[in-house]
């Protein structure tokens, strides 16, 4: 059951974003920024956690989930450290994802050469 929920919720988020891509002149980069910020906002007003509980990876894998993760980390850090938490929470929360993307990509740049688009 959790696979079905992940599939349809994740798919539905992507399908909705597709409308944004096709109907507006928003470039992919702007859409990604919009998603992360919206995720943080939705999470902070308590709307995203229920979705994450319901859909699992369907809510955490899309970039909205990245925003959700950032907010969760921020909240936890503020609760523990106060003002200092405002400056540690975000990066702590997304550290695994960002580090992985940077490190793997750097290694990839050693292995792979640029290729033509088909």
């Amino acid at each position: 059951m959790d696979y079905i929920n992940a599939f349809w919720v994740g798919g539905a988020i992507c399908a909705l974003v597709q409308i944004l891509l096709d109907k507006t002149k928003l470039l992919p980069g702007r859409v990604m920024v919009l998603l992360v910020c919206s995720g943080a906002v939705l999470s902070s007003i308590g709307l995203y956690q229920p979705l994450a509980d319901y859909a699992g990876a369907g809510a955490s894998v899309p970039l909205l989930g990245f925003g959700h993760l950032l907010w969760k980390g921020m909240k936890k850090a503020i609760d523990q450290q106060g003002i200092l938490g405002l400056f540690t929470g975000g990066f702590t929360a997304c550290s695994a994802g960002v580090s992985a993307a940077l490190i793997f990509s750097w290694i990839a740049s050693l292995i792979f050469r640029p290729k033509m688009k088909k």
């Binding site: 891509l21 992919p28 640029p114 290729k115 033509m116 688009k117």
Partner: peptide, 18 residues
Amino acid sequence: HFATAEKEFRFPLGYGNQ
């Protein structure tokens, strides 16, 4: 050249866009 123009004006070639 397709690749230099993509780099100059748009995205790196490995980027998956429509």
